[in-house]
Structure formats: structure tokens, C-alpha cells
């Protein structure tokens, strides 16, 4: 069961209670550098709650989350993002009031320096930084294959391209880890294939991914490691093959896949 590699993210004995309901119960797992890890489970299994705890939107009732050696439990979402963990959203959160490339340039925020006063006075360093970030944003758009749409208004993009745009915006921050919240939701087969290619390519370049997903086909195809939740409890983890063979998992989840999804 033990995997080789350097640990990037550690979820340690996380519990989250909402009143009397235990949404996540004593869940632990590690994410290694360069790996694609999927968190799966039936509806109401606690995946989203766990996701929100890792990204800092919710504070856990107990337990800790460590990211590249830093304890990030209870930190605010923007602080966690500044440490190099970005995310995409299930229900798309592109900046509709900007162009495509500006969305991506906004993603690069954490590695830029311009302050309010410097920006207002347009000191020479600002101009240089703007030029550099625009070029960088263009490269990010090329990586996800929508560079030709750079100067379109973001909200005019079709759904699938908006998801790719979110990924471009996430990689513009030069993160170590990207969290994908149901990345395949709402995509057609062609768009899903493109997205899988993009994710695999970015992994090759050294990025680590954690994603929550319903689409089992994608999960089994691209994950290196899978964590299975049911009723807030981790009922199994392992490689896709191990998950297939895990009786508890099959009983709780895969056996009733039809009715769940």
C-alpha cells in the first residue's frame, strides 16, 4: 500500500461536524508530489466538505491539514492559495467581467509585486511586469489550447472552454497543487477527452492534482491513487486496481453506481 515519493499534502484525522451531523469523520490520507489523486464517494459522502476544508473555506472540527510542510489548518483560502495551492470550481467561477487573458493574468497575482501606489503612478517596473505577465498568461492559454480566444470576453466562451480557462488561470499562479472540483461535470465526451489530455500533460510537467469526481471512467483512467469516502468515513484507498478489488468499496459504492449517479 505504501507509495513512493515526497509527500506534498497531508490530511490528518480530519473531522467536521455540522451540529449533530458528522460530515467528515476522522479521514486521513497523503498526496504525493506529481501524483493525480481522486476522492470519490456517493452523494453526501463528504467529498465537498473535505474539499472545502483543504482549501480553507471551512475550518475542521478537529484534525490538521499540512501543505508542503506548513500547517494550513484554519488559514484563510487566499493565504492557502498564496502558498501554492489553487483550484477550479464545479460551477465555474470565471471572471465574466474580464477578457480571457485578463482572467489568466489575474491568476498570476500571487507572484507579482505591483502595489496600489506603484500601479497608480505607473512606475517603470509596472510596465515591465505587465508585459511579462501577459506573455506568461499567453503561454498558460497555449498549454490548455485556447490561446486563440485570448482577447475574447470570458463569458462568451462555451462551457468546456471556460473550464479550460479556469485551469489556465490556476496554473498561472505557478502552484504546486491544483484541486479540481468535479472537472468533468457538464462536459461532453470530446471536451472531457481534451481536459484529460491537458491534465496528464500538466502532470508530466510536475504538477500535482487532487480531484473530486463522479465520472468513474475518468477517475479509473487517470488517477494514480484513489481515496473512497462513504458517509464521511474513508472506506478504502489505493490504486485503481486495488479499488476495483476492494470489497467494501464495491459494496458501498461501485455496486450501486447506477443508482448513485
Amino acid at each position: 500500500m505504501k507509495r513512493n515519493g515526497q509527500v506534498l499534502l497531508t490530511v490528518e484525522r480530519i473531522t467536521k461536524q455540522f451540529g449533530g451531523v458528522v460530515a467528515v469523520n476522522d479521514v486521513s490520507f497523503d498526496v504525493n508530489k506529481g501524483e493525480i489523486l481522486a476522492v470519490i464517494g456517493p452523494n453526501g459522502a463528504g467529498k465537498t466538505t473535505l474539499f472545502n476544508i483543504v482549501t480553507g473555506i471551512l475550518a475542521p472540527s478537529s484534525g490538521t491539514v499540512r501543505f508542503s510542510g506548513t500547517d494550513i489548518t484554519g488559514k484563510k483560502p487566499y493565504q492557502i492559495a498564496q502558498l501554492g495551492m489553487t483550484r477550479t470550481f464545479q460551477n465555474l467561477e470565471v471572471f465574466t467581467n474580464m477578457s480571457v487573458i485578463e482572467n489568466v493574468m489575474t491568476g498570476a497575482h500571487r507572484n507579482m509585486k505591483t502595489s496600489f501606489l506603484q500601479a497608480g503612478l505607473r512606475v517603470p517596473s509596472v510596465k515591465k511586469e505587465e508585459k511579462a505577465v501577459e506573455e506568461k498568461a499567453m503561454r498558460c492559454l497555449e498549454k490548455v489550447g485556447i490561446a486563440h480566444l485570448a482577447y475574447e470576453r470570458a463569458e462568451t466562451l462555451p462551457y468546456g472552454n471556460q473550464r479550460l480557462l479556469e485551469i489556465a488561470r490556476a496554473i498561472a499562479a505557478e502552484p504546486a497543487l491544483i484541486l479540481l472540483d468535479e472537472p468533468m461535470a457538464g462536459l461532453n465526451d470530446e471536451e472531457s477527452r481534451r481536459l484529460v489530455e491537458v491534465i496528464l500533460q500538466l502532470r508530466k510537467e510536475g504538477l500535482t492534482f487532487v480531484f473530486v469526481e463522479h465520472d468513474m471512467e475518468t477517475v479509473m483512467a487517470i488517477s494514480d491513487h484513489i481515496v473512497v469516502l462513504d458517509n464521511g468515513v474513508k472506506i478504502g484507498e489505493g490504486t485503481p486496481e486495488e479499488i476495483y478489488r476492494n470489497k467494501a468499496v464495491v459494496a458501498a459504492y461501485l455496486g450501486e453506481e447506477e443508482t448513485v449517479c
Binding site: 483560502p77 471572471f95 497575482h109 505607473r122
Partner: peptide, 21 residues
Amino acid sequence: SRVGRALRSIEGSEAASDAVG
């Protein structure tokens, strides 16, 4: 500038502004 985009991102989506730090 960086600052202007940060400001506009707040109007666009606070969740996403948060997510890019």
C-alpha cells in the same frame, strides 16, 4: 494593472479571487 485586475476580480467572483490568492 495587477491591482485593477484584483479589484475587478472581486466584482467578478470573490470565490475565485480567493482561490488565486
